[in-house]
C-alpha cells in the first residue's frame, strides 16, 4: 500500500494515496469562531472554501507551523490538512488497526487506522476522513478543548 508520508509536529503520519486530492503550499487561512482547537479556520482552495485541520493538534502533538496543505476527500467535500514537511510517497506496511488498539485510545483510535514504522520511527496511518463518524469529531473536539 502506497501512502503519502508527512510530518505533523513531532509525529510521523501517512495517508493512503487514494485519499489525497493534492498537495500545495499553505494558503491564507481565516480563523473561525466556535470551532474546535484543531480547526485552524477556513481557506479558499481552487475557488472552494475549505476547512483546514491542524493534524498535529488533532493527534495531540500540540500546535505546529504548517508547511503544506494536503487536501483529502470527505463525504462533505474536501478538507485541507495542515501538515509539516512531506516526505514523499512510500510503500507502508501497517497492522490494520490491530495490534494494540486499546493502547491507541478510544476516540482517537478511530482517527488512526494503523501503526507502522519508517526507518525506526513510528508511523501513524490516518483513517480515511470519509469513515470518521461525527461523534469522533465531537470527541476530538471535546478532548482538544482546553
Amino acid at each position: 500500500m502506497t501512502a503519502l508520508v508527512f510530518r505533523a509536529g513531532p509525529l510521523l503520519c501517512a495517508l493512503r494515496l487514494d485519499e489525497v486530492v493534492e498537495t500545495m503550499r499553505p494558503r491564507e487561512t481565516l480563523p473561525l469562531a466556535g470551532t474546535p482547537a484543531f480547526v485552524r479556520g477556513i481557506s479558499v482552495l481552487r475557488g472552494v472554501p475549505t476547512p483546514v485541520i491542524d493534524v498535529s493538534r488533532l493527534l495531540g502533538g500540540g500546535p505546529a507551523e504548517p508547511e503544506r496543505f494536503v487536501t483529502v476527500h470527505t463525504e462533505r467535500g474536501a478538507v485541507a490538512l495542515a501538515t509539516g514537511e512531506l516526505l514523499g510517497i512510500h510503500a507502508v506496511d501497517t497492522d490494520a488497526a490491530g495490534g494494540h488498539p486499546a493502547l491507541l485510545g478510544g476516540a482517537s483510535s478511530r482517527l488512526v487506522a494503523g501503526v507502522g514504522s519508517v526507518e525506526d520511527e513510528p508511523l501513524l496511518l490516518l483513517q480515511s476522513m470519509r469513515t470518521v463518524p461525527d461523534e469522533v469529531w465531537e470527541a476530538a473536539a471535546a478532548a482538544g478543548a482546553p
Binding site: L4, V20, E22, T23, L86
Partner: peptide, 17 residues
C-alpha cells in the same frame, strides 16, 4: 525545486489512480 516537489507529489498522486 519546492514547486517541482509539490508538482511531482501531485503528479504521483494523480498517477496512482
Amino acid at each position: 525545486a519546492e514547486q517541482t516537489n509539490i508538482l511531482a507529489i501531485n503528479a504521483t498522486i494523480e498517477a496512482s489512480g
